[in-house]
């Protein structure tokens, strides 16, 4: 648990721990880690923007998910929690097989 904010920490999620079982020589560190995180947030926003949400970094270890009005928000530590938070806020299913979402992403290419 984070002593400052009380968020339970469970080690890095597989999506953030590099591509080789979280081995420190392969996992992104320092500045690269933050760049990766920023890039991840950019891509996440492409997706959850479709549902009327945004995500931003919080303290380099968590994410804040909120609706566009800012009236509802949740703090999460990894992507699985992100999808649940998005659903809690929007009451919509975060589904990558949603053809409207796919169409939106394809429209960017």
């Amino acid at each position: 648990m984070c002593a400052l904010c009380g968020v339970l920490m469970d080690g890095p999620h597989w999506t953030e721990a590099g591509t080789n079982a979280g081995r420190s020589d392969d996992a992104p560190q320092g500045h690269q880690r933050q760049l990766d995180r920023d890039y991840r947030i950019t891509l996440i926003n492409r997706v959850i923007g479709h549902y009327g949400c945004t995500a931003r970094d919080f303290a380099g270890s968590q994410y804040v998910v909120q609706n566009l009005s800012g009236g509802a928000s949740e703090v999460v530590i990894n992507l699985p929690q992100m999808w649940q938070a998005m659903e809690n806020i929007t009451r919509k299913i975060a589904d990558p097989l949603d053809t409207k979402l796919i169409g939106r992403l394809e429209g960017r290419v």
């Binding site: 999506t15 891509l43 992507l79 699985p80 999808w83 299913i93 975060a94 589904d95 990558p96 097989l97």
Partner: peptide, 13 residues
């Protein structure tokens, strides 16, 4: 990064 976002979302749903 895109793969991680996609797979976690797929498995969530």
């Amino acid at each position: 990064t895109a793969f991680g976002i996609w797979l976690t979302m797929l498995l969530h749903a």
